[in-house]
Design a protein around this nucleic acid. Structure first.
Length: 456
RNA sequence: GGCGGGUUGGCGGAGAGGUUACGCACCGGAUUGCAAAUCCGUGAAGACCGGUUCGAUUCCGGUACCCGCCUCCA
């Protein structure tokens, strides 16, 4: 069995991954709040941890890995969106989840084993909060249920902060009913026009962090193997999840391995609406950037480092994928290459794994196909973009005719005519390759029939 | 202010205390009437200053610059 090592944010070191139960490996990834199209930054953890999911399935067996990724469908941003557009919340979340699936499918992410929605787990959240209250880790104040950070001495350990330092540097206004400024909301009251559920603390809705603790416990158990998400979630989200889960179930470990991906930049700068470099996955797809290219670019940088999205990278990735797709055309995939898998298993070194694919491209196309598919690339059903539009019979005939005049011109040593045809093909977007087995041609995206006809 | 990450050849980007990363580009060669494609090959790095070591780009400390988190965020 291929040994997998992972950098565990919790211990801040690389560790040999050993599942609690090799017959049931369990992973939880923080998903999306569904109020709008997923932006490019949302796609990074999806692609990265999809690759981990695929690796785990390869090593432990397809039926022995459970991957849970949640949808946050109760959130004030969703409420705002509903108020602004006059639409029902359920419509907005349903539509956004549909978009999310479309976009993440397009970048080659497998659907997780389970995609729980927060609103389906309100009862579990309420009982989890009740447990915390009963154990003295949470308290009620003015319709809120709040987590008492001072009741959990390890609070802050995970993200390397101390409660006192955080209070000193805090820039937040502190609600007067909090016992400690860092106490966070488990449950908050809703006004009549806001979504709400009945609870021991009155009609209200859950705080942000409680859903992951409740859903992870319900679907994966009190202790599970991997919990992952963006590094920006380390604090407060994951710190708070740990506080909630470990206080409610002190006998368990909650998640043993924590993985965090670094952030995304665009042309060297943080992606933001004000810089005008903010875009969604759908924007890129609509511009003709194939999902497979997005995936390749994402995997080119190790997940632990900031990843810079640039147009140049996308172009280069497209050229490489086009070349590889040509190499495996008609080739039946064999099995993933051992060295490739070993590199990928070293803390999900996708950049190193791509280098192994380059090696295989020069030696073993069947292994290239199988290996690439292990990381969600070169999948047969993702390759439509690389196929040139089937030329019409007329066009094929015209090209055949022109190629014949070219050979004739060569035979007659009429190099002026031969060169004119050579350059003409290129200008018209017909890529002609002379190979030992004969002439091959393909149409480039820039194919221009008029210019081709002019060559006659 | 507190916490964390980064700085590798023209560009992108990994691993490893000592031996070629790799890709793209470039250059040389083969091939071609000339090209394209293909194949072979060369060159090119480790922000700066110290320390540990027989030896550091790799470990430790400091400096500079960049970035992220601490507030919704993947």
């Amino acid at each position: 069995m291929t040994p997998i090592t992972l950098f565990n944010t919790k211990t801040r070191q690389s560790e040999r991954f050993t599942p609690i139960d090799a017959a049931s490996v369990r992973m939880y990834v923080c998903g999306a709040t569904v109020y709008d199209r997923a932006h490019l930054g949302n796609a990074r953890p999806v692609i990265v941890f999809d690759t981990l999911f695929r690796l785990l399935r390869h090593v432990y067996g397809v039926d022995h890995v459970t991957y849970v990724r949640n949808f946050t469908d109760v959130d004030d941003r969703i409420n705002e969106r509903a108020a602004k557009t006059g639409r029902a919340i359920g419509d907005i979340t349903r539509e956004t989840i549909g978009w999310y699936h479309d976009d993440m499918d397009a970048v080659g992410a497998l659907r997780p084993t389970a995609e729980p929605r927060a609103t389906d787990y309100i009862a579990q959240m309420i009982s989890l909060i009740e447990v915390l209250v009963s154990k003295g880790h949470a308290y009620e104040a003015e319709g809120h249920a709040l987590f008492d950070v001072r009741s959990y001495p390890a609070y802050g350990k995970f993200s390397g902060r101390s409660v006192d330092d955080m209070i000193a540097g805090a820039r937040v206004e502190v609600a007067p009913f909090k016992r400690d400024p860092m106490d966070f909301v488990l449950w908050k009251p809703s006004t009549p026009d806001q979504p709400g559920w009945d609870s021991p603390w009155g009609r209200g809705r859950p705080g942000w962090h409680i859903e992951c603790s409740a859903m992870a416990h319900d679907l994966l158990g009190a202790s599970f193997d991997i919990h992952a998400g963006g590094i920006d979630l380390q604090f407060p989200h994951h710190e708070n999840e740990i506080a909630q889960s470990c206080c409610a179930h002190p006998e368990s470990d909650f998640a043993r391995n924590w993985l965090h991906n670094e952030m995304l930049l665009v042309e060297g700068r943080k992606m933001s609406k004000s810089l005008g470099n903010f875009f969604t996955v759908r924007d890129l797809l609509d511009q003709g950037v194939p999902g497979e290219v997005i995936r390749f670019v994402m995997l080119q940088t190790h997940y632990g480092k900031p990843m810079d999205w640039t147009v140049a990278k996308a172009e280069q990735a497209e050229a490489t994928l086009r070349k590889w797709r040509g190499l495996i055309d008609g080739v039946e995939a064999s099995v993933p290459d051992e060295r490739f898998v070993a590199v990928l298993a070293e803390n999900l070194n996708t950049a190193g794994a791509l280098a192994e694919l380059h090696r295989l491209a020069g030696s073993d196309p069947a292994a290239l196909a199988a290996s690439a598919r292990l990381m969600g690339l070169l999948e047969p059903d993702m390759g439509a973009w690389a196929e040139t539009a089937g030329p019409s019979a007329d066009v094929s005939e015209l090209i055949a005719e022109l190629l014949e005049s070219r050979s004739a011109a060569r035979a007659n040593r009429d190099f002026a005519r031969a060169d004119a045809l050579r350059d003409g093909f290129a200008a018209a977007g017909v890529v002609v390759k002379d190979t030992p087995t004969g002439v091959e041609w393909t149409l480039a995206p820039s194919f221009d029939l008029a210019r081709l006809q002019a060559l006659k």
